[in-house]
């Protein structure tokens, strides 16, 4: 069953056509890669799906809900979590607090509960702390629980960001260039981590990546975007051979000659 269905998604920034007639059906439990040259509209697709932009046209259906007009936190509450291309952790909050706050959509209490420390508040806070601690252990971050993210190395920050997304127990995890800026050793760890997370949490994973080793290793299916349009999709093997993909990345054979 498709967990996420995108139909005819089109988005304009003023006169610029960022995404055009993008279609996608993401199957439950799948690892899908979204690749394409710089400026192809990959992150825009993510931003449209996560509710940060509202598309000019098109439908997005996530686990049976139409989410096109929802605001980001409402989409998140339905079970979609993501990371960002440029790490966006909350830097004046500790790693542990980062993991707690991302569960905001599951709080189940409000301002009155906060002030009077109601039963709902106490159960919810206990549950939140427990989940955050589990994530700390799973991603071996326990040692850094009380550190501020900005003081930690880059690879670790990426892992914390993935942890923050996992803490909300999503059904769909969207990773925006998780390997960006990582050294080869960190990339290997990341590949291992993503595969492991998928098996452990039974997640559907959708990732944007430039790093071909990551994409070819973990994605079961790849969609290639260029100038906002899907130019190819298929297994890593098929994509590697596809002439349109090679053209999009390397340019025309003619233009190289010239």
């Amino acid at each position: 069953m498709a967990i996420l269905e995108v139909r005819n998604l089109t988005h304009f920034f003023g006169g610029l056509r960022a995404v055009f007639k993008f279609d996608l059906a993401l199957q439950e439990g799948e690892v899908l890669g979204l690749i394409g040259p710089n400026g192809a509209g990959k992150t825009t697709v993510f931003n449209l799906v996560s509710g940060f932009y509202h598309p000019t046209e098109g439908d997005i259906c996530f686990r049976g809900n139409e989410i096109v007009r929802l605001r980001p936190h409402e989409v998140t509450a339905l079970g979609m979590a993501r990371t960002f291309q440029n790490i966006r952790l909350w830097n004046t909050l500790t790693v542990f607090e980062n993991l707690c706050i991302s569960q905001h959509s599951k709080l189940g209490y409000g301002i009155l509960g906060t002030i009077f420390r109601s039963r709902g508040f106490r159960t919810s806070e206990r549950c939140i702390r427990k989940t955050a601690e589990e994530i700390l252990d799973i991603l071996s971050l326990r040692h850094y629980a009380n550190e501020y993210p900005k003081n930690l190395p880059y690879g670790l920050q990426r892992r914390i960001e993935i942890g923050r997304a996992l803490a909300m127990r999503p059904h769909l995890l969207m990773l925006d260039e998780p390997a960006a800026g990582m050294n080869p050793g960190e990339v290997d760890q990341l590949i291992e981590l993503i595969t492991w997370i998928r098996d452990k949490f039974q997640l559907t994973i959708w990732l944007i990546e430039h790093h071909m080793r990551v994409v070819m290793n973990i994605c079961e299916r790849i969609v290639v975007l260029d100038f906002g349009e899907t130019i190819a999709q298929g297994t890593p093997e098929e994509i590697r051979q596809d002439p349109r993909v090679i053209q999009a990345y390397l340019g025309d054979a003619d233009s190289i000659d010239a």
């Binding site: 940060f52 980001p72 998140t76 966006r88 909350w90 991302s102 905001h104």
Partner: peptide, 9 residues
């Protein structure tokens, strides 16, 4: 932006 996308209203 991160707060909103990570579920904070």
């Amino acid at each position: 932006i991160a707060a909103n996308i990570m579920g904070v209203n």
